[in-house]
């Protein structure tokens, strides 16, 4: 009988989740369409802007950012990296991947930073949030690809949403951590001088949590980059797609080239975003 019960419960989870997804599909279609339109519009706008710019302008702008935030040596590396990507004829997929990463990161932060702030301020939110984040980080990505495709079809939208689910946790965790690590006497000073809650948040807590939040941004971008192959399996396109082609055709050259492009893009993004957490030229704040 115990086995029956166990089977009923075990089977029940599967049955119930199927029913839930179906219920959302039956009744939530208008809401899903709105979400899809918003995400598509946002991702498309970023993509369009990046692809619309001439390669020299985009590469030049990112190189300038590298020069400003990191230094001469790294600016040279950035310029060479983009030249190599261009030479390998991978410019368009690379820029489209960059667009996907930027869109997912922006959405992750838009949801993740407020959630992190809430978790830092409320014990209940902290408990619920941690459970949710554990779920998001440990659930194999392929599992939520299924409902993502069912809800949003194939293409850019489910790719961005799956990436957001995978990449958001560090932004949330490091925001909450950063706020909790603000020295208590700074919070006391804020309150002693008559800060209201929002003033305490914006004038004391967030500025002092900024290095930690920027580390979260950096981690989110890295995780978004690591999702691009999975995302391309549901039609997100970009460099992930080229990697997939390399696998399907057993084309070692294409695989190495596209892999190299991913790595170069990752290094450039990593170093530039890291510099915001530590201060210009790598100086500790």
């Amino acid at each position: 009988m115990d086995e029956d019960l166990a089977a009923a419960i075990g089977g029940g989870i599967g049955v119930w989740s199927e029913r839930l997804v179906n219920a959302i599909l039956d009744h939530g279609q208008p809401a899903l369409d709105v979400v899809a339109a918003l995400v598509d519009g946002f991702g498309g706008a970023i993509d369009g802007a990046l692809l619309g710019a001439p390669p020299w302008a985009l590469g030049g702008a990112i190189t300038a950012a590298a020069l400003w935030r990191v230094g001469k040596g790294f600016a040279l590396f950035t310029a060479l990296a983009f030249a190599a990507i261009f030479a390998m004829d991978l410019w368009e997929p690379t820029v489209s991947t960059l667009g996907l990463v930027l869109a997912s990161t922006a959405l992750s932060l838009a949801a993740g930073v407020p959630l992190g702030i809430w978790m830092a301020r409320s014990r209940i939110a902290d408990g619920l949030g941690k459970t949710l984040l554990d779920l998001m980080q440990t659930m194999p990505a392929f599992v939520y690809l299924i409902p993502a495709v069912m809800f949003f079809g194939l293409g850019r939208v489910p790719g961005i949403i799956a990436t957001v689910i995978f990449a958001m946790p560090p932004a949330v965790r490091l925001t909450a951590l950063g706020i909790r690590q603000v020295p208590p006497e700074l919070v006391e000073a804020g309150r002693a001088f008559g800060c209201r809650d929002h003033q305490l948040l914006f004038k004391v807590q967030l500025p002092n949590a900024l290095p930690s939040i920027m580390a979260g941004v950096n981690q989110t971008m890295m995780m978004a980059l690591s999702m691009i192959v999975v995302a391309s399996m549901i039609g997100a396109g970009g460099l992930g797609n080229v990697v997939l082609q390399g696998i399907q055709r057993l084309d070692i050259g294409l695989g190495v080239e596209s892999g190299l492009a991913v790595v170069l893009l990752a290094v450039v993004i990593d170093r530039i975003t890291q510099s915001f957490g530590t201060g210009r030229g790598g100086k500790a704040r």
Binding site: E188, A189, A192, R285
Partner: peptide, 21 residues
């Protein structure tokens, strides 16, 4: 209370508690 703190009282801390930014 916030009004009173803003108008009448201020505080100096052992660890200075200055905002580093």
């Amino acid at each position: 209370l916030v009004e009173v703190l803003r108008r009448d009282m201020s505080m100096v801390f052992q660890s200075f508690a200055l905002l580093p930014n």
